[in-house]
Every structure is written in structure tokens, then in C-alpha cells.
Nucleic acid binder design. Structure first.
Lengths: 161, 161
DNA sequence: CCTGAAACGACCCCTTC
DNA sequence: GAAGGGGTCGTTTCAGG
């Protein structure tokens, strides 16, 4: 589907604060409340906006430790096998198959380092896993709520330096 | 701060759908709408809930490609230096310093592989960067909206297998 | 523009320390 | 008897058509 600048502005506004009223969004983007609502409804129907969610502080919920784990799997392991397996761990908040030496990269959130260790232990014990390589997160530098940036506008990135 | 089970249930409900009415949430958790609102207000004040956001489909916005990039930096590079530098790239949606060989891990979203390449090129050109090691994401297996799980309840993970 | 509904604040009640 | 948390009600504002 096609998104114009107004759609992108509306999305950016909703990513910033999903509880704004349509009138408030309208003021920001230069539309009436009704027009904004029509566009938001359309954006939801077309799947550009998939829902609305509360942003929570993992720390406040007790998730103080995170880690990235590279997964090295047996030759014939299917991505769907990995997906099925890691989905059973609530601690695995993200996972993807990747290029390079490892087959997959997992992002884990846990209550402490000991907890991370237990989860990795269990994952490593799965049949198709040959070995794992973990990195504990020391400090988070960036954690962007996605969707604010605008690829099509060709301002792909600032030009640092 | 202290979170009881009611707070956790309310958070889970809001993570699932931030646009539910207080009355609806109240039905789920067993409270009146007013009581829910009071708790939500408190959760926001204390920082457990940091805001409300629209969930967007990166694909629909044109971000079809992602990559993870390990950063190897010069000996005396400070985390804040890395943070400052990578924050200028809207394509860097997450970054953290980590244990292991690499100093930091970046998560990049871009419009296509060529775009990823350009961003990595620019990052690699930064003064403190010695080298980079990139992995393109082939397929995303898990992408959890964080906050649904409940660490304190001691159901740390399913027991797969 | 109009209607129904939700948010919001005020007030009272109950419990607990 | 003071403080914290919950329920009820009335008013205002927003969503939705």
C-alpha cells in the first residue's frame, strides 16, 4: 500500500503517544479529527498499524538483565523448528535467523544473570542445538520505539562527522 | 517500587491492547474502572509504564531489511561515545555494549540490503571503530511485545521437551 | 452535527496499622 | 484515627456514525 507524508506523520504521532485524541493529532498534522480517524482506521485495516500497546520499563517489572545468544544448529534444522522451540521461552523476546557463522540470534530478557544462565542451559539442551555463544548486555545505549523514522523521505541517516 | 499481581495483570492487559477502556480492563482483573485508572496513573508516575505507543509494521513503512552489527572499538572508547555516535543514525533501532569479543552490538533496520551496507559503511568510518562484523537477518522468528511475561510469578519459562 | 460512551474527579466506605 | 485502596456517582469530553 501507499503511504503519504500525512500518514507517516500520523503514525509518528501515534508511536509517540497512542492515547492522543484525534483532534490533537489533527492539530499536529494539519487535519480535522474526523480525517485523522479515517486515516487511522485505514492504516489499521491495511496492517501498517498493528495495534496499540503500553510501553513498559523492563527494569520496573524485574527484567534487569539481557543477553544475546548466537545459536549454532545441526545442518538440517529448519527456521520453523527454531521458532517453535524458542517461542516456548518467555525470556526470548526476539529471535531471527541470520547470515554468518551462527544460524540464529536470540535476544533474552531475564531477572538476573543466573536466570540468563538457566535459560541458555535449557536452550543449549535442545536436540538441534550444536552450541551457543552468549553475550551479556552491559549497558543499553539505544532502544528506539520503532516507527518514528521515515525511510521514504530519503533522510536515511544523519551524516555524523 | 512494589507491584502486586493486580498491577501485573493490568500491565499485561495494556501491553496487549492499550486502547481498552478502564472498564474492560477492570472486568479482566476484577476491579472497577476507577480503581484501574488509579493504578494505571500510579504505574505511570512510578515509571513502570512509560507511555502508550502504536505498534507499526516495519514492512508497511518500508523497513524490509534488518541486520545485527558487532562493533569492535579502540581500547579507550567509552560507552557514551558509542551511544552518541550511533544515536545519530535513525537506522540503528537498538544498541548495547556487551561482553565477549565485540564491544557493542547494533540492531539496524533499513529499506534494503544496499541501505544496510551504506549505514554500516558510515558506522565503520567512525574514528573509534576498529572493525565491524555484520549479520543480515534472514527471517524473524520471534518479536515479542515486551511486558507480557511475569518474572516474579516464578513461571520463568515453559519446560520445552 | 449528534448521540452514546468513556474518562475524570469528588465523595464515601472499608480495611489496616 | 490516619492512610491507602476500592466502589459509586455526576460532569465533561471524546469517539463514532
Amino acid at each position: 500500500m501507499e503511504l503519504d507524508q500525512l500518514d507517516r506523520d500520523i503514525i509518528a504521532a501515534l508511536v509517540d503517544d497512542a492515547r492522543q485524541t484525534y483532534a490533537e493529532i489533527g492539530q499536529q498534522v494539519g487535519l480535522s479529527a474526523s480525517a485523522v480517524k479515517r486515516r487511522v482506521d485505514r492504516l489499521r485495516e491495511t496492517g501498517a498499524i498493528t495495534g496499540f500497546s503500553a510501553r513498559v520499563s523492563p527494569q520496573a517489572l524485574g527484567w534487569t538483565t539481557e543477553a544475546y545468544v548466537e545459536l549454532f544448529c545441526q545442518g538440517k534444522t529448519k527456521p520453523s523448528d527454531i521458532a517453535l522451540a524458542v517461542n516456548r521461552f518467555p525470556e526470548v523476546v526476539a529471535a531471527a535467523t541470520i547470515t554468518g557463522e551462527a544460524d540464529a540470534l536470540l535476544h533474552i530478557r531475564a531477572t538476573d544473570v543466573r536466570h540468563v544462565e538457566r535459560v541458555i542451559e535449557r536452550i543449549a539442551a535442545m536436540a538441534f542445538v550444536v552450541r551457543t555463544k552468549s553475550s551479556i548486555v552491559l549497558s543499553r545505549l539505544v532502544d528506539t520505539p520503532p516507527g518514528a523514522a521515515v525511510p521514504e523521505a530519503r533522510n536515511e541517516s544523519a551524516t555524523p562527522g
